[in-house]
Amino acid sequence: MKTSELSAVRWRKSSHSGPTGGDCVEVARSPSGVAVRDSKHPGVSRLALSRAVFGELVRELRRPVR
């Protein structure tokens, strides 16, 4: 994912983020995949994933902990 793609994306905050501004994750769709960032530090680091890899990440996070 190119940096120029990230300047035009619309970031969405996780529905699990609290109203106090605590640990918040934001995601954005782009033509080449999905970007993830920390809402407290939006310009510091971003993780760029393909749609397939992001789907695997979400499926893994939804699995019950044993």
Results as ranks from 00 to 15, higher is better:
33 G>W: 01
61 L>V: 13
46 R>H: 11
25 V>D: 02
49 L>D: 03
10 R>I: 12
34 V>P: 00
5 E>S: 09
47 L>G: 06
18 G>M: 08
1 M>R: 05
25 V>Q: 01
50 S>N: 06
22 G>D: 13
22 G>V: 07
8 A>Q: 14
48 A>G: 11
27 V>H: 01
31 P>I: 04
65 V>T: 12
49 L>R: 05
15 S>G: 14
20 T>D: 15
61 L>H: 07
27 V>N: 01
46 R>I: 14
45 S>Y: 04
21 G>H: 07
47 L>Q: 06
7 S>R: 13
41 H>I: 07
50 S>K: 06
34 V>C: 04
31 P>K: 09
11 W>Y: 07
19 P>A: 14
65 V>R: 15
38 D>C: 08
9 V>P: 04
38 D>R: 03
46 R>S: 12
14 S>Q: 08
55 G>W: 01
4 S>M: 03
46 R>L: 11
39 S>I: 03
3 T>A: 14
19 P>Y: 03
47 L>E: 06
40 K>H: 09
19 P>V: 10
17 S>T: 12
40 K>L: 12
4 S>C: 03
8 A>E: 14
50 S>W: 03
14 S>Y: 05
55 G>P: 01
5 E>W: 00
51 R>G: 10
60 E>K: 08
9 V>H: 05
26 E>G: 09
5 E>F: 00
35 A>I: 02
22 G>Y: 02
24 C>V: 09
43 G>M: 03
22 G>I: 03
50 S>A: 10
19 P>M: 07
17 S>V: 06
41 H>G: 02
24 C>R: 05
63 R>S: 12
45 S>K: 05
12 R>Y: 07
6 L>P: 00
43 G>Q: 11
34 V>S: 01
35 A>H: 04
17 S>K: 04
19 P>D: 10
47 L>A: 09
54 F>A: 13
20 T>G: 13
52 A>T: 15
6 L>S: 01
